[in-house]
Design a protein around this nucleic acid. Structure first.
Lengths: 156, 156
DNA sequence: TTTCTATTGTTATATTATAACAAAACATTT
DNA sequence: AAATGTTTTGTTATAATATAACAATAGAAA
């Protein structure tokens, strides 16, 4: 199975995901999601716009922001507030509460953690203050494994 | 002890904090920190600028952003990436690794958690992926106790 | 078809943040 | 004090991020 069919597969799954929620993954939204998925790490809205314009010269900022808003709302993408960047959600299947996004300071890559036992503890601590957590992603910064290796190689 | 002397007390402590790090809390920085401290919740850069201009009409965006950068670097303030807003750090004394910021979706208020036992667990999970956490704040969204009460009152 | 709603197009503008260079303040050495 | 270097602040311009507002189009429902 090559990359292209893999991508189409993911997009079809996303379309289904939308239908189950009474929403539609239109051509435009599908294209934006496709661009998001094609990026390993996160991507910025105006980078996405530039990509989109290659195939759709008419695209303007609202074009991309509206598609992103849709994808965020339906859970197909995440916004990384600390970077003002966006990333496709790769973990559609599990019922996730707080997506934990490990963001690499170096390469802007993102790894989404699905283990959530730590989250319970967190929610307890917050509850002790009367704080009720909303279901949003939590962003953690650091250096990914790959960039740590590059770092060491540079020091050698 | 009234509010004013309390504020001056905090500002003096902040000045000391800077000196210990070989940095200086200049008048300008002190004024910006003062405005940050005067706000319960978080405040946006341009709101801060407007406040600053009341006493210092010459102030421009770089004025406030430079002061904020300084305060962030020396640890006297936090940036909330998800809101593009800023907040004074109220927990100077303890050696904190990852400040946990509970941000209210409603009132933009922030509560800084100092208990960090959950952070160890988090670091372990991340380490399993080879991810090394950097010492940065972690932002958690939700509804604060106060806003929950207001919410209920509205429903009654 | 007609009507209603959702989506997309388009233009303009708001909001957030930084670059670049000049001036002033401050510290250090002579 | 004068000369020098460094840090901080002033100032203008502009970059980067995001949304408002309204027109046009497409799709669904009556």
């Amino acid at each position: 199975m090559n990359t292209e069919t893999n991508l189409e597969h993911e997009l079809d799954a996303a379309a289904n995901w939308c239908l189950q929620r009474g929403e539609k993954l239109t051509d435009l939204r599908r294209e934006v999601l496709s661009l998001l998925l094609a990026h390993d790490g996160s991507i910025k809205a105006y980078e996405l716009l530039a990509e989109l314009q290659k195939r759709k010269p008419t695209a303007a900022p609202p074009t991309v922001y509206r598609a992103l808003d849709f994808l965020l709302n339906v859970g197909l993408a995440h916004k990384l507030g600390s970077l003002n960047a966006f990333v496709a959600c790769r973990e559609l299947d599990h019922t996730h509460h707080h997506g934990l996004m490990l963001i690499c300071d170096r390469c802007r890559g993102v790894h989404e953690l699905s283990d959530e036992s730590w989250a319970e503890r967190l929610a307890e601590d917050a509850a002790r203050l009367g704080f009720r957590l909303s279901q949003q992603d939590i962003e953690i910064k650091g250096i990914c494994a790959n960039c740590q290796q590059v770092e060491q190689a540079g020091e050698a």
